[in-house]
Protein backbone atom coordinates (compact mmCIF):
# COMPACT_ATOMS: atom_id res chain seq x y z
CA UNK A 1 0.00 0.00 0.00
CA UNK A 2 1.01 3.62 -0.57
CA UNK A 3 0.07 6.61 1.52
CA UNK A 4 -0.84 10.27 1.35
CA UNK A 5 -0.14 12.34 4.46
CA UNK A 6 -2.73 14.90 5.51
CA UNK A 7 -1.56 17.34 8.18
CA UNK A 8 -3.98 17.84 11.04
CA UNK A 9 -3.85 21.05 13.07
CA UNK A 10 -6.25 22.01 15.89
CA UNK A 11 -8.94 23.15 13.46
CA UNK A 12 -8.87 19.97 11.41
CA UNK A 13 -8.63 17.86 14.59
CA UNK A 14 -11.93 19.33 15.83
CA UNK A 15 -13.59 18.31 12.56
CA UNK A 16 -12.16 14.80 12.78
CA UNK A 17 -13.38 14.59 16.37
CA UNK A 18 -16.91 15.43 15.28
CA UNK A 19 -16.99 12.43 12.92
CA UNK A 20 -15.31 10.10 15.43
CA UNK A 21 -11.98 9.87 13.61
CA UNK A 22 -9.79 11.85 16.00
CA UNK A 23 -7.98 8.77 17.26
CA UNK A 24 -6.86 7.82 13.72
CA UNK A 25 -4.54 10.82 13.48
CA UNK A 26 -1.02 10.21 14.77
CA UNK A 27 0.71 12.87 16.89
CA UNK A 28 4.09 13.74 15.33
CA UNK A 29 5.17 17.16 16.57
CA UNK A 30 3.82 19.36 19.35
CA UNK A 31 0.17 18.54 18.76
CA UNK A 32 0.52 18.49 15.00
CA UNK A 33 -0.90 15.24 13.76
CA UNK A 34 -0.87 13.34 10.53
CA UNK A 35 -3.62 11.33 8.91
CA UNK A 36 -2.42 8.65 6.52
CA UNK A 37 -4.68 7.85 3.59
CA UNK A 38 -3.89 4.53 1.96
CA UNK A 39 -4.04 3.84 -1.75
CA UNK A 40 -3.18 1.02 -4.13
CA UNK A 41 -0.40 1.11 -6.70
CA UNK A 42 -2.95 1.75 -9.42
CA UNK A 43 -4.47 4.67 -7.49
CA UNK A 44 -0.99 6.06 -6.75
CA UNK A 45 -0.12 6.00 -10.46
CA UNK A 46 -3.39 7.72 -11.37
CA UNK A 47 -2.74 10.47 -8.83
CA UNK A 48 0.79 11.02 -10.12
CA UNK A 49 -0.53 11.14 -13.66
CA UNK A 50 -3.13 13.73 -12.70
CA UNK A 51 -0.65 15.83 -10.69
CA UNK A 52 2.66 15.70 -12.56
CA UNK A 53 4.34 17.97 -9.99
CA UNK A 54 3.71 15.41 -7.24
CA UNK A 55 6.32 12.81 -6.40
CA UNK A 56 6.32 9.43 -4.75
CA UNK A 57 8.97 9.25 -2.05
CA UNK A 58 10.06 5.66 -2.40
CA UNK A 59 13.19 6.04 -0.27
CA UNK A 60 11.87 7.19 3.10
CA UNK A 61 8.16 7.82 3.70
CA UNK A 62 6.67 5.73 0.84
CA UNK A 63 4.13 8.50 0.54
CA UNK A 64 2.98 10.78 -2.29
CA UNK A 65 4.51 14.20 -1.69
CA UNK A 66 4.10 17.67 -3.27
CA UNK A 67 0.42 17.32 -4.05
CA UNK A 68 -1.26 20.73 -4.37
CA UNK A 69 -2.76 21.98 -1.12
CA UNK A 70 -6.17 22.20 -2.83
CA UNK A 71 -6.09 18.47 -3.65
CA UNK A 72 -5.30 17.62 -0.05
CA UNK A 73 -8.04 19.97 1.19
CA UNK A 74 -10.47 18.11 -1.05
CA UNK A 75 -9.30 14.76 0.34
CA UNK A 76 -9.71 15.98 3.91
CA UNK A 77 -13.19 17.29 3.20
CA UNK A 78 -14.14 13.91 1.71
CA UNK A 79 -12.88 12.16 4.86
CA UNK A 80 -15.11 14.41 6.97
CA UNK A 81 -18.09 13.98 4.63
CA UNK A 82 -17.76 10.20 4.41
CA UNK A 83 -16.66 9.61 8.00
CA UNK A 84 -13.89 7.20 7.01
CA UNK A 85 -10.52 7.16 5.26
CA UNK A 86 -11.54 5.19 2.20
CA UNK A 87 -12.05 8.19 -0.08
CA UNK A 88 -9.60 7.83 -2.98
CA UNK A 89 -12.22 6.68 -5.53
CA UNK A 90 -14.55 9.53 -4.49
CA UNK A 91 -11.59 11.87 -4.87
CA UNK A 92 -11.07 10.69 -8.47
CA UNK A 93 -14.78 11.23 -9.16
CA UNK A 94 -14.57 14.76 -7.78
CA UNK A 95 -11.63 15.75 -10.02
CA UNK A 96 -12.61 13.95 -13.21
Amino acid sequence: MYSINLWINEERYDKLNQVGLANVAKDVLAGMKVLKLQCTKEQKDRILQFYPMAKFDSATTRSIELLPAEAKDKMFNLVIKKGNLDIIEEFFESIS
Binding site: N5, W7, N9, D27, L29, G31, A69
Partner: peptide
Protein backbone atom coordinates in the same frame (compact mmCIF):
# COMPACT_ATOMS: atom_id res chain seq x y z
CA UNK B 1 11.23 13.57 22.03
CA UNK B 2 9.65 14.97 18.87
CA UNK B 3 12.44 16.55 16.85
CA UNK B 4 11.90 19.64 14.71
CA UNK B 5 12.20 18.39 11.20
CA UNK B 6 12.59 21.02 8.51
CA UNK B 7 11.19 18.57 5.97
CA UNK B 8 8.11 17.93 8.08
CA UNK B 9 7.45 21.63 8.60
CA UNK B 10 7.96 22.35 4.91
CA UNK B 11 5.42 19.65 4.14
CA UNK B 12 2.85 21.34 6.44
CA UNK B 13 3.56 24.69 4.79
CA UNK B 14 3.31 23.17 1.33
CA UNK B 15 -0.17 21.97 2.33
CA UNK B 16 -0.95 25.46 3.70
CA UNK B 17 -2.04 23.90 6.98
CA UNK B 18 -1.22 26.33 9.78
CA UNK B 19 1.04 24.44 12.23
CA UNK B 20 0.34 24.54 15.96
CA UNK B 21 1.64 27.58 17.86
CA UNK B 22 4.31 25.55 19.59
CA UNK B 23 5.94 24.69 16.29
Amino acid sequence: KQAFSGTMIRSMIQDKVKPTKLI
